[in-house]
Amino acid sequence: MKNDYAQLPVGLFRPAPFDEAAAELTGYAPYSYWRSTFRTFIRNPISVGLLLVIVVFCAMGFLYPVFSNVDPNRVDLETSQWNLSPQSGHPFGTDGLGRDLWARTWHGTRTSMLLGFIIAVLDVGIGMVVGALWGYVRRLDRPMTELYNVLNNVPQPVILVLLPYILRPGFWTIIIALCSTGWIGIARFVRNKVISIRDAEYNVASRCLGTPLHRMISRNVLPYLVSVLIMEAALTIPYSIGSEVYLGFIGLGLPLDTVSLGNLVNLGKNNFMLYPYQLAWPTAIVAAITISFYIVGNRFSDASDPRNHV
């Protein structure tokens, strides 16, 4: 045995001296949930690349309007400035009123991102609280299940059309309309998770071994929920951005003097044959953002699954 490793290629292996302290470490892994999640996540270059895309678009969307003084709704009275194709001064060209598409795209990105973030936070926030209660408080199960069935069976168009009549069409109305149906799905999801985690064997075992409640929650339950919730949030954002585009198409979107990606896509679509770039830019950005969020969300959910941690 002793001579065997001498035959191994030099440079690949080196003998390690015995270290008592290091040997102790194997007995207790310094496992940190978040660090492992993060480590698993950044191991994948695609995830990191797409995260970067999101960061860049967020930065452009939120910083451009602050640092630029170009008004995205500034109409040019000179008709020769209408429908310009991309050129210096107007990197994305101008639209049918001579409005600068570069400025409009970033303002629109901001509006749509904001919309997505707010809806995600509200949906997940409400869904988490209600879902946890629904899962833990057994008395709530019946009425909540009924509420779920009812909300699930009210066609969404009814709410989407009715709300703007009761409130006014606008940013917050869209948010309320989309949230009104979004939270219940997440709540139900959380409820199912809570029930299954609560009654899972390892938790029963943990309880039997006398693990204190706070440790059970922080180590056993929360990691599962947090990963799920973050993924839900990450997936709600592209869904909300997509919904805004769809609502614009059926005429229930944001007021048209609000600059949003949905409005840009729908306005561009009308002129696609003639001025393809008016559709191309906002579409490319919508696609990049939604795909990035979708993949990053999924990757993060994979990374945050303790089973995938090594």
């Binding site: 709704n73 500034r74 109409v75 009123l97 007021p255 048209l256 003097d257 729908n266 306005l267 009308n270």
Partner: peptide, 19 residues
């Protein structure tokens, strides 16, 4: 009205009068 043509017209009118 909140439709594309009407919104465009409104924006143009505003620019025109302010000019």
């Amino acid at each position: 009205f909140n439709d594309p043509t009407d919104t465009k017209r409104a924006l143009l009118l505003k620019a025109m009068l302010e000019d």
